[in-house]
Design a protein around this nucleic acid. Structure first.
Lengths: 224, 224
DNA sequence: GATTCCTTTGATTATTTTTTCAACTGTCTG
DNA sequence: CAGACAGTTGAAAAAATAATCAAAGGAATC
């Protein structure tokens, strides 16, 4: 969610409109008071902050944001008609992430928003496998179905991981055996079937994802 | 270390001089070739990149930086006399972090450098690790549960710290061993179990936070 | 140097997962 | 439609893994 604090409703509307049309969620505020009020409930991903505002001005708001521990990491892009070097330096040194000089093009605004967000997002660390409503988090070793955590045993987890890593591919029982149990494992009777069954049960409404290929083995098919 | 790629030696020298006088380490390059050569040996904290360069131009260099896995996270500020919205958008969308239009003031440059670096530096190490009613104070080296101080042994404390620093992630016994005991420690895996047990006991009603992941290891559940 | 507390370890118990076996169901084929 | 084959189901045995306990070995402290 991106928040624009701007007293000129014309400009504000254009900003919101452009952000939304570029796929961002956006919301506008006309002054610091309503802005801080909303901040109690929710934190935006980024704030575009006009400097010239009635009441508390943008620089004041920025200072306040940077003082509070809850908000000091929120990225802020300042926007103003004052384009002197001093104005820019002041804002940037107070902790703004970027600075837009009015009149600025909407596409420049978008590019700067993207640039700041890009730099702010942490390196992706979580390795995930997804298909339909099923998500496997390899780092947490957890599995969720439609957002609900489900508990899998080790073998079930390994099977699911194998299937999700190779969507669409058929695996014979022997292949599943050697991949999940290890190449030199000796075991015959319906062990794989058994685990497929329990896995299907736990996947609930997504049990259809594990398809039986008669005479061959099993396969994971992601719909949607 | 900040690197400036700029063919005009006059401008380059001023940039370097200003950066150094502001306490940064700085180094200049007159073209892409020497720049990439130096990049083999060392990685800069930030690059100020002129667009108009002999040979490979700044945009090309930026593209190349963003393609290589070794360099794609290096912050880049573009600098150029071309100040049209298109130029800015192009650079920013290619992955630049900021854009300076020549002639730019040296203090603006410093402010933008600071702003970009500020945003790039990782979150300060949290000196207070919290989860549910458990609080670890790294400065005091104390742990409290529901406000009550509890006494942990060294290994217990290190374990808890590791878990709280990585909420949700699973750790195998081997990982716990190498992280808490040291990489080259050789010992039975029962040792870890034992410390997990004592730690759980001391966490009292929060013992559930340390989850056993059968066949894998342990994990601290990231609640709240 | 004695004492205390922390750490480690082996043995034992408890718990969960995995495997097995047999019966069952469905599908395909002649 | 019967028979054979392949997959599914259910329960119970077997195996694997983790938790617990008690006791020995170490490190730090006084």
């Amino acid at each position: 969610m991106i928040w624009c604090v701007e007293d000129d409703s014309g400009i504000r509307d254009i900003e919101i409109y452009t952000l939304k049309s570029m796929g961002f969620e956006a919301q506008g505020f006309s002054d610091g008071e309503t802005f801080f009020e909303a901040l109690e409930k929710e934190k935006p991903e980024l704030v575009i902050l006009d400097i010239m505002l009635p009441g508390e001005d943008g620089v004041e708001i920025l200072k306040r944001l940077r003082t509070e521990p809850d908000t000091y990491r929120i990225p802020v892009i300042m926007a103003t008609a004052k384009g002197t070097e001093f104005d820019k330096i002041q804002s940037l040194d107070l902790g703004a992430d970027d600075y837009l000089v009015k009149p600025f093009g909407m596409m420049e605004m978008i590019s700067r928003v993207k640039a700041v967000l890009r730099r702010c997002e942490p390196e992706p660390v979580q390795r995930l496998l997804k298909a339909d409503g099923v998500i496997v988090n390899l780092d947490e070793h957890t599995v969720s179905v439609d957002g609900e955590r489900i508990l899998l045993t080790f073998k079930e987890y390994e099977l699911l991981k194998l299937f999700l890593s190779n969507p669409g591919l058929v695996f014979t029982r022997d292949q599943l055996m050697s991949d999940v149990w290890g190449v030199d494992y000796i075991g015959e009777s319906r062990t794989v079937d058994m685990h497929i069954r329990t896995l299907r049960q736990k996947l609930g409404s997504y049990s259809y994802m594990i398809e039986t290929v008669r005479n061959v083995g099993y396969r994971m098919e992601a719909k949607k």
